[in-house]
């Protein structure tokens, strides 16, 4: 059954995929031919096809993370042909379609590479470091109930919009995967600057940035070299400006907060 484009010809491709049994075992690139791939398939649907073939022949299918397949949950990853989420800018792997490849192409597929993202299996990595960074301070310390009326806190539209831009981070980790230093600065700064911009978050802005940066360092991410690769590869367009804001927040917090230890 052809899709939206009846003239689209099915493609034959060669995949080179990282296979690794578990965290302890060494992995290797393994080559798989796939045939009859419709250009209308998403990249993950192409992998589904391969996995069904593998399964039918009794082989272990390739494990990869995915969930919503709408580009919002941030679960899908994959370093495709040398770039996180593949060749299309502003696109998660699940929204990447096979029409961006050509018949006969060889496609390499690797997991995110970072010491802080150990491989669970094949293309699945452990991104719990991101959660721990958020747990270190990515919140406003309020309990449920007892909060003021929503309109009691007016926020200028331009600030609200800017905070929103930072808040759209999907936590996929493409920034870390793209960075030559495996730095998590873009991810961390998105939350730090979102909350630093808003009056609700300003109250504890100092401890937040101090604690989140400390946790980021503990997790073993690299430092920022300002190459901009993270923002260039971010599927939702988180801006580098957030990193500058975080640097500023960090410096001023360190200079003025009362944490002497």
């Amino acid at each position: 059954m052809a899709g939206s484009n009846p003239n689209a010809k099915p493609m034959d491709l060669t995949l080179k995929v990282w296979r690794q049994k578990n965290r302890e075992t060494a992995g290797a690139m393994v080559t798989y031919p796939v045939k009859g791939i419709s250009p209308d398939m998403s990249f993950l649907e192409m992998l589904d096809v391969l996995n069904e073939d593998l399964l039918r022949s009794g082989q272990d299918p390739i494990a990869f993370d995915h969930d919503c397949r709408e580009g919002i949950c941030g679960m899908c990853s994959l370093y495709i042909n040398g770039r996180p989420h593949g060749p299309e800018r502003g696109t998660t792997t699940c929204q990447l379609h096979m029409r961006h490849f050509n018949d006969g192409d060889t496609i390499t597929i690797e997991p995110w590479r970072a010491a802080a993202f150990p491989v669970h299996k094949d293309l699945v990595v452990d991104r719990s470091a991101f959660d721990r960074i958020q747990q270190a301070g990515g919140y406003v310390s309020i309990n449920t109930g007892g909060v003021p009326d929503a309109n009691a806190i007016p926020i200028g539209k331009s600030i609200a919009d800017k905070a929103f831009d930072a808040a759209t981070c999907i936590g996929c980790g493409a920034c870390v995967a793209a960075c030559k230093n495996a730095s998590a600065m873009l991810f961390v700064s998105a939350k730090v600057s979102q909350l630093a911009m808003l009056p609700q978050g300003k109250v504890e802005a100092k401890t937040r940035v101090e604690n989140m940066v400390a946790q980021m360092d503990i997790e073993g991410f690299g430092a920022c070299s300002n190459t901009g690769a993270c923002a260039a590869e971010c599927p939702v367009g988180i801006s580098l400006e957030n990193i500058a804001i975080m640097n500023r927040e960090y410096l001023s917090a360190k200079a003025t907060s009362e944490h002497v230890a």
Binding site: K16, N81, G82, T108, E110, K180, N181, S183, G220, A223
Partner: peptide
Amino acid sequence: RNKAARPVGYANS
């Protein structure tokens, strides 16, 4: 530190 942050590199980058 940056090198240690990515002990295993990419085959294709």
